[in-house]
Protein backbone atom coordinates (compact mmCIF):
# COMPACT_ATOMS: atom_id res chain seq x y z
CA UNK A 1 0.00 0.00 0.00
CA UNK A 2 2.76 2.42 0.96
CA UNK A 3 4.81 1.82 -2.19
CA UNK A 4 1.70 2.16 -4.29
CA UNK A 5 1.03 5.50 -2.64
CA UNK A 6 4.49 6.68 -3.61
CA UNK A 7 4.30 5.63 -7.26
CA UNK A 8 0.63 6.25 -7.94
CA UNK A 9 0.80 9.90 -8.89
CA UNK A 10 3.89 9.87 -11.14
CA UNK A 11 2.68 6.68 -12.81
CA UNK A 12 -0.85 7.95 -13.37
CA UNK A 13 0.46 11.20 -14.83
CA UNK A 14 2.52 9.24 -17.36
CA UNK A 15 -0.55 7.20 -18.32
CA UNK A 16 -2.55 10.41 -18.51
CA UNK A 17 -0.16 11.93 -21.06
CA UNK A 18 -0.09 8.73 -23.12
CA UNK A 19 -3.89 8.56 -23.17
CA UNK A 20 -4.13 12.25 -24.07
CA UNK A 21 -1.82 11.83 -27.08
CA UNK A 22 -3.43 8.58 -28.21
CA UNK A 23 -6.92 10.05 -28.00
CA UNK A 24 -5.85 13.02 -30.09
CA UNK A 25 -4.01 10.88 -32.63
CA UNK A 26 -6.76 8.38 -33.44
CA UNK A 27 -10.07 9.19 -35.07
CA UNK A 28 -11.77 9.56 -38.41
CA UNK A 29 -8.62 11.44 -39.43
CA UNK A 30 -5.33 10.31 -37.90
CA UNK A 31 -3.09 13.02 -36.55
CA UNK A 32 0.63 12.57 -36.01
CA UNK A 33 2.64 14.13 -33.21
CA UNK A 34 4.56 16.42 -35.66
CA UNK A 35 1.16 17.65 -36.94
CA UNK A 36 0.15 18.46 -33.38
CA UNK A 37 3.41 20.29 -32.71
CA UNK A 38 3.31 22.35 -35.88
CA UNK A 39 -0.36 23.17 -35.31
CA UNK A 40 0.42 24.50 -31.84
CA UNK A 41 3.37 26.40 -33.29
CA UNK A 42 1.20 27.97 -35.97
CA UNK A 43 -1.44 28.84 -33.46
CA UNK A 44 1.08 30.62 -31.27
CA UNK A 45 2.37 32.53 -34.27
CA UNK A 46 -1.20 33.54 -35.07
CA UNK A 47 -1.13 31.76 -38.44
CA UNK A 48 -3.94 29.70 -39.91
CA UNK A 49 -3.56 25.89 -39.79
CA UNK A 50 -1.27 24.74 -42.62
CA UNK A 51 -3.30 21.68 -43.62
CA UNK A 52 -6.46 19.72 -42.82
CA UNK A 53 -4.72 17.67 -40.13
CA UNK A 54 -3.74 20.74 -38.19
CA UNK A 55 -7.24 22.11 -38.63
CA UNK A 56 -8.90 18.94 -37.36
CA UNK A 57 -6.49 18.83 -34.46
CA UNK A 58 -7.10 22.42 -33.34
CA UNK A 59 -10.80 22.78 -34.06
CA UNK A 60 -12.19 19.28 -33.46
CA UNK A 61 -9.95 16.76 -31.80
CA UNK A 62 -8.21 18.85 -29.15
CA UNK A 63 -11.32 20.55 -27.74
CA UNK A 64 -13.11 17.21 -27.74
CA UNK A 65 -10.38 15.36 -25.87
CA UNK A 66 -9.88 18.22 -23.41
CA UNK A 67 -13.60 18.52 -22.69
CA UNK A 68 -13.69 14.76 -22.21
CA UNK A 69 -10.82 14.85 -19.72
CA UNK A 70 -12.32 17.74 -17.79
CA UNK A 71 -15.73 16.02 -17.69
CA UNK A 72 -14.17 12.74 -16.57
CA UNK A 73 -12.42 14.51 -13.72
CA UNK A 74 -15.64 16.31 -12.81
CA UNK A 75 -17.72 13.12 -12.72
CA UNK A 76 -15.15 11.26 -10.63
CA UNK A 77 -14.67 14.09 -8.15
CA UNK A 78 -18.42 14.47 -7.94
CA UNK A 79 -18.69 10.77 -7.10
CA UNK A 80 -16.16 11.19 -4.30
CA UNK A 81 -17.94 14.25 -2.92
CA UNK A 82 -21.44 12.75 -3.07
CA UNK A 83 -20.29 9.46 -1.56
CA UNK A 84 -18.53 11.34 1.20
CA UNK A 85 -21.54 13.51 1.85
CA UNK A 86 -24.06 10.67 1.90
CA UNK A 87 -21.46 8.49 3.67
CA UNK A 88 -22.14 5.82 1.17
CA UNK A 89 -20.02 4.06 -1.43
CA UNK A 90 -22.75 3.59 -4.03
CA UNK A 91 -23.89 7.14 -4.66
CA UNK A 92 -23.13 9.04 -7.84
CA UNK A 93 -24.70 12.01 -9.65
CA UNK A 94 -26.57 9.72 -12.07
CA UNK A 95 -28.25 7.81 -9.24
CA UNK A 96 -29.42 10.64 -7.02
CA UNK A 97 -31.13 12.77 -9.63
CA UNK A 98 -28.48 15.43 -10.26
CA UNK A 99 -27.88 14.46 -13.88
CA UNK A 100 -31.55 13.82 -14.67
CA UNK A 101 -32.54 17.15 -13.14
CA UNK A 102 -29.83 18.95 -15.07
CA UNK A 103 -30.89 17.16 -18.27
CA UNK A 104 -34.46 18.33 -17.79
CA UNK A 105 -33.38 21.91 -17.15
CA UNK A 106 -31.27 21.92 -20.30
CA UNK A 107 -33.97 20.33 -22.45
CA UNK A 108 -36.32 23.14 -21.46
CA UNK A 109 -33.89 25.60 -23.02
CA UNK A 110 -33.45 23.43 -26.12
CA UNK A 111 -37.15 23.48 -26.84
CA UNK A 112 -37.93 27.01 -25.70
CA UNK A 113 -34.99 28.69 -27.40
CA UNK A 114 -36.82 28.55 -30.76
CA UNK A 115 -39.36 31.02 -29.40
CA UNK A 116 -36.72 33.39 -28.04
CA UNK A 117 -35.50 36.51 -29.79
CA UNK A 118 -32.41 36.18 -31.98
CA UNK A 119 -30.16 37.87 -29.40
CA UNK A 120 -31.28 35.57 -26.62
CA UNK A 121 -30.85 32.55 -28.89
CA UNK A 122 -27.18 33.39 -29.26
CA UNK A 123 -26.87 33.37 -25.48
CA UNK A 124 -28.81 30.13 -25.10
CA UNK A 125 -26.04 27.72 -26.05
CA UNK A 126 -23.20 28.79 -23.80
CA UNK A 127 -25.15 30.44 -20.97
CA UNK A 128 -28.83 29.55 -20.67
CA UNK A 129 -28.33 25.81 -21.07
CA UNK A 130 -25.81 25.53 -18.20
CA UNK A 131 -27.85 27.89 -16.06
CA UNK A 132 -31.08 25.93 -16.48
CA UNK A 133 -29.19 22.67 -16.07
CA UNK A 134 -27.81 23.97 -12.78
CA UNK A 135 -31.30 24.91 -11.61
CA UNK A 136 -32.71 21.51 -12.51
CA UNK A 137 -29.78 19.63 -11.02
CA UNK A 138 -29.90 21.56 -7.78
CA UNK A 139 -33.64 21.07 -7.41
CA UNK A 140 -33.41 17.31 -8.01
CA UNK A 141 -30.42 16.74 -5.72
CA UNK A 142 -31.93 18.80 -2.96
CA UNK A 143 -35.25 16.97 -3.24
CA UNK A 144 -33.54 13.57 -2.95
CA UNK A 145 -31.46 14.76 -0.04
CA UNK A 146 -34.36 16.25 1.90
CA UNK A 147 -36.62 13.25 1.31
CA UNK A 148 -33.88 10.82 2.32
CA UNK A 149 -33.08 12.89 5.39
CA UNK A 150 -36.74 12.89 6.40
CA UNK A 151 -36.62 9.15 6.88
CA UNK A 152 -35.17 8.66 10.33
CA UNK A 153 -32.09 6.76 9.25
CA UNK A 154 -30.74 7.67 5.85
CA UNK A 155 -29.91 4.22 4.53
CA UNK A 156 -28.92 3.26 1.03
CA UNK A 157 -32.11 1.50 0.13
CA UNK A 158 -34.21 4.58 0.86
CA UNK A 159 -31.75 6.81 -0.90
CA UNK A 160 -31.69 4.71 -4.05
CA UNK A 161 -35.46 4.39 -4.14
CA UNK A 162 -35.97 8.13 -3.77
CA UNK A 163 -33.27 8.58 -6.41
CA UNK A 164 -35.23 6.34 -8.78
CA UNK A 165 -38.39 8.36 -8.21
CA UNK A 166 -36.73 11.73 -8.76
CA UNK A 167 -34.84 10.37 -11.77
CA UNK A 168 -38.14 9.21 -13.22
CA UNK A 169 -39.63 12.67 -12.78
CA UNK A 170 -36.61 14.24 -14.48
CA UNK A 171 -36.68 11.71 -17.32
CA UNK A 172 -40.38 12.10 -17.96
CA UNK A 173 -39.91 15.87 -17.93
CA UNK A 174 -37.18 15.53 -20.53
CA UNK A 175 -39.37 13.07 -22.45
CA UNK A 176 -42.22 15.55 -22.45
CA UNK A 177 -39.95 18.28 -23.75
CA UNK A 178 -38.74 16.09 -26.60
CA UNK A 179 -42.37 15.14 -27.34
CA UNK A 180 -43.44 18.74 -27.80
CA UNK A 181 -40.18 19.62 -29.54
CA UNK A 182 -39.79 19.99 -33.28
CA UNK A 183 -37.66 17.41 -35.01
CA UNK A 184 -34.08 18.76 -34.84
CA UNK A 185 -34.52 19.80 -31.20
CA UNK A 186 -35.91 16.39 -30.30
CA UNK A 187 -32.96 14.70 -31.91
CA UNK A 188 -30.50 16.78 -29.94
CA UNK A 189 -32.35 15.94 -26.71
CA UNK A 190 -32.29 12.21 -27.41
CA UNK A 191 -28.64 12.23 -28.35
CA UNK A 192 -27.85 14.25 -25.36
CA UNK A 193 -29.65 11.97 -22.91
CA UNK A 194 -27.10 9.34 -23.85
CA UNK A 195 -24.13 11.66 -23.67
CA UNK A 196 -21.83 12.71 -26.47
CA UNK A 197 -18.66 14.67 -27.00
CA UNK A 198 -19.15 15.27 -30.70
CA UNK A 199 -19.40 18.96 -31.42
CA UNK A 200 -17.26 20.03 -28.47
CA UNK A 201 -16.16 23.64 -28.77
CA UNK A 202 -13.40 25.68 -27.19
CA UNK A 203 -16.02 27.81 -25.49
CA UNK A 204 -17.34 24.70 -23.71
CA UNK A 205 -13.80 23.70 -22.78
CA UNK A 206 -13.12 27.08 -21.17
CA UNK A 207 -16.41 27.28 -19.27
CA UNK A 208 -16.31 23.70 -17.96
CA UNK A 209 -12.59 23.88 -17.34
CA UNK A 210 -12.93 27.00 -15.24
CA UNK A 211 -15.83 25.71 -13.13
CA UNK A 212 -14.37 22.22 -12.66
CA UNK A 213 -10.93 23.56 -11.73
CA UNK A 214 -12.46 25.94 -9.22
CA UNK A 215 -14.65 23.26 -7.63
CA UNK A 216 -11.79 20.74 -7.47
CA UNK A 217 -9.54 23.27 -5.80
CA UNK A 218 -12.20 24.14 -3.25
CA UNK A 219 -12.96 20.45 -2.71
CA UNK A 220 -9.39 19.62 -1.71
CA UNK A 221 -9.67 22.27 0.98
CA UNK A 222 -12.54 20.26 2.47
CA UNK A 223 -10.55 17.00 2.46
CA UNK A 224 -10.09 16.89 6.24
CA UNK A 225 -13.72 17.65 6.92
CA UNK A 226 -14.87 15.00 4.46
CA UNK A 227 -12.59 12.49 6.19
CA UNK A 228 -14.14 13.31 9.54
CA UNK A 229 -17.60 12.86 8.09
CA UNK A 230 -16.75 9.18 7.53
CA UNK A 231 -17.06 8.75 11.30
CA UNK A 232 -20.68 9.89 11.18
CA UNK A 233 -22.41 13.25 11.21
CA UNK A 234 -22.66 13.64 14.94
CA UNK A 235 -19.09 12.46 15.43
CA UNK A 236 -17.85 14.88 12.79
CA UNK A 237 -19.57 17.60 14.78
CA UNK A 238 -17.72 16.54 17.93
CA UNK A 239 -14.48 16.73 15.95
CA UNK A 240 -15.16 20.33 15.01
CA UNK A 241 -16.90 20.09 11.64
CA UNK A 242 -19.96 22.26 11.01
CA UNK A 243 -21.67 19.45 9.12
CA UNK A 244 -24.70 21.40 7.96
CA UNK A 245 -22.53 24.10 6.45
CA UNK A 246 -20.23 21.50 4.90
CA UNK A 247 -23.14 19.64 3.30
CA UNK A 248 -24.74 22.77 1.92
CA UNK A 249 -21.50 23.98 0.36
CA UNK A 250 -20.36 20.68 -1.10
CA UNK A 251 -23.81 20.03 -2.54
CA UNK A 252 -23.91 23.47 -4.16
CA UNK A 253 -20.40 23.34 -5.67
CA UNK A 254 -20.86 19.79 -6.81
CA UNK A 255 -24.20 20.44 -8.44
CA UNK A 256 -22.75 23.45 -10.24
CA UNK A 257 -19.92 21.35 -11.61
CA UNK A 258 -22.08 18.42 -12.68
CA UNK A 259 -24.83 20.56 -14.17
CA UNK A 260 -22.45 22.49 -16.35
CA UNK A 261 -20.72 19.33 -17.54
CA UNK A 262 -24.13 17.74 -18.18
CA UNK A 263 -25.34 20.82 -20.03
CA UNK A 264 -22.61 20.44 -22.63
CA UNK A 265 -22.08 16.72 -22.98
CA UNK A 266 -25.29 15.13 -21.70
CA UNK A 267 -25.85 12.38 -19.17
CA UNK A 268 -22.90 10.07 -18.58
CA UNK A 269 -23.69 7.49 -15.95
CA UNK A 270 -21.60 5.35 -13.63
CA UNK A 271 -18.27 7.17 -14.02
CA UNK A 272 -18.77 8.77 -10.64
CA UNK A 273 -19.33 5.37 -9.14
CA UNK A 274 -16.54 3.32 -10.65
CA UNK A 275 -13.61 5.69 -10.38
CA UNK A 276 -13.83 6.59 -6.67
CA UNK A 277 -14.38 2.95 -5.84
CA UNK A 278 -11.28 1.83 -7.72
CA UNK A 279 -9.23 4.61 -6.16
CA UNK A 280 -10.42 3.65 -2.68
CA UNK A 281 -9.30 0.08 -3.33
CA UNK A 282 -5.88 1.31 -4.45
CA UNK A 283 -5.22 4.20 -2.09
CA UNK A 284 -7.70 4.11 0.77
CA UNK A 285 -10.23 6.79 1.66
CA UNK A 286 -8.16 9.74 2.79
CA UNK A 287 -9.72 12.49 0.69
CA UNK A 288 -6.40 14.26 0.45
CA UNK A 289 -5.21 11.52 -1.90
CA UNK A 290 -8.60 10.30 -3.08
CA UNK A 291 -9.69 13.58 -4.67
CA UNK A 292 -6.65 14.22 -6.90
CA UNK A 293 -6.32 10.52 -7.70
CA UNK A 294 -9.96 10.32 -8.81
CA UNK A 295 -9.52 13.44 -10.89
CA UNK A 296 -6.69 11.92 -12.88
CA UNK A 297 -8.23 8.45 -13.13
CA UNK A 298 -11.61 9.89 -14.12
CA UNK A 299 -10.16 11.87 -16.98
CA UNK A 300 -8.13 8.88 -18.19
CA UNK A 301 -11.04 6.45 -18.10
CA UNK A 302 -13.59 8.75 -19.73
CA UNK A 303 -11.14 9.59 -22.49
CA UNK A 304 -10.63 5.88 -23.18
CA UNK A 305 -14.41 5.43 -23.19
CA UNK A 306 -14.72 8.29 -25.69
CA UNK A 307 -12.10 6.69 -27.91
CA UNK A 308 -14.29 3.61 -27.85
CA UNK A 309 -17.30 5.74 -28.74
CA UNK A 310 -15.49 7.19 -31.75
CA UNK A 311 -13.63 4.13 -33.00
CA UNK A 312 -15.69 1.00 -32.27
CA UNK A 313 -18.25 1.61 -35.03
CA UNK A 314 -16.23 4.15 -37.05
CA UNK A 315 -17.14 6.15 -39.03
CA UNK A 316 -20.42 6.07 -37.04
CA UNK A 317 -20.28 7.20 -33.41
CA UNK A 318 -21.77 5.52 -30.32
CA UNK A 319 -23.09 7.85 -27.63
CA UNK A 320 -20.56 7.64 -24.80
CA UNK A 321 -23.26 7.17 -22.16
CA UNK A 322 -24.04 3.81 -23.72
CA UNK A 323 -20.46 2.68 -23.24
CA UNK A 324 -20.15 3.88 -19.65
CA UNK A 325 -23.50 2.29 -18.79
CA UNK A 326 -22.58 -1.01 -20.43
CA UNK A 327 -19.41 -1.19 -18.38
CA UNK A 328 -20.77 0.57 -15.32
CA UNK A 329 -24.06 -1.22 -14.69
CA UNK A 330 -22.53 -4.68 -14.13
CA UNK A 331 -19.94 -3.05 -11.92
CA UNK A 332 -22.71 -1.37 -9.94
CA UNK A 333 -24.51 -4.68 -9.43
CA UNK A 334 -21.25 -6.24 -8.27
CA UNK A 335 -20.82 -3.42 -5.81
CA UNK A 336 -24.37 -3.80 -4.51
CA UNK A 337 -23.74 -7.49 -3.92
CA UNK A 338 -20.47 -6.79 -2.18
CA UNK A 339 -21.97 -4.25 0.16
CA UNK A 340 -24.71 -6.76 1.04
CA UNK A 341 -27.54 -4.50 0.03
CA UNK A 342 -29.15 -7.21 -2.03
CA UNK A 343 -29.11 -9.69 0.85
CA UNK A 344 -32.26 -11.06 2.42
CA UNK A 345 -32.35 -8.59 5.28
CA UNK A 346 -32.68 -5.74 2.82
CA UNK A 347 -31.60 -3.17 5.37
CA UNK A 348 -28.30 -2.32 3.80
CA UNK A 349 -25.68 0.00 5.10
CA UNK A 350 -26.62 3.34 6.43
Amino acid sequence: MATLNKYFFPLSLVIWVIVLLTAIAFGAVSITVPDMLSAVQHWFQGKAPANIYEGVFLQIRLPRVLLCMITGAALAVSGVLMQGLFRNPIVEPGLIGTSAGAAFGASVVFVMSASLSADLQKLAGPLLVPLFAFGGGLLATYTVYMLAKGTRRMNVTTLLLIGIAVNAVGLSGTGFMSYIARDPQARSITFWNLGTFSGSTWMQVWITGFVVAAVCMIATRYAKQLNTLILGEEEAGYAGVDTEKLKRRIMLYNTAMISIATAFVGVISFMGLIVPHLMRLLLGSDHKRLLPASMIAGSILLTIADMGARLLLAPAEIPIGIITSLVGAPFFILLLKRTHILNTKGGGHD
Binding site: I230, G284, S285, D286, H349, D350
Partner: peptide, 16 residues
Protein backbone atom coordinates in the same frame (compact mmCIF):
# COMPACT_ATOMS: atom_id res chain seq x y z
CA UNK B 1 -16.74 12.63 22.87
CA UNK B 2 -16.59 8.87 22.51
CA UNK B 3 -19.88 7.69 21.05
CA UNK B 4 -21.56 4.32 21.49
CA UNK B 5 -21.52 3.24 17.86
CA UNK B 6 -19.42 3.93 14.82
CA UNK B 7 -20.35 2.77 11.37
CA UNK B 8 -17.64 3.36 8.81
CA UNK B 9 -18.41 2.52 5.21
CA UNK B 10 -15.05 3.42 3.66
CA UNK B 11 -11.64 1.81 4.09
CA UNK B 12 -9.36 3.86 6.35
CA UNK B 13 -6.28 2.77 8.26
CA UNK B 14 -6.30 2.81 12.06
CA UNK B 15 -3.63 5.52 12.00
CA UNK B 16 -5.78 7.70 9.75
Amino acid sequence: VLSQHYHISFPLSVRE
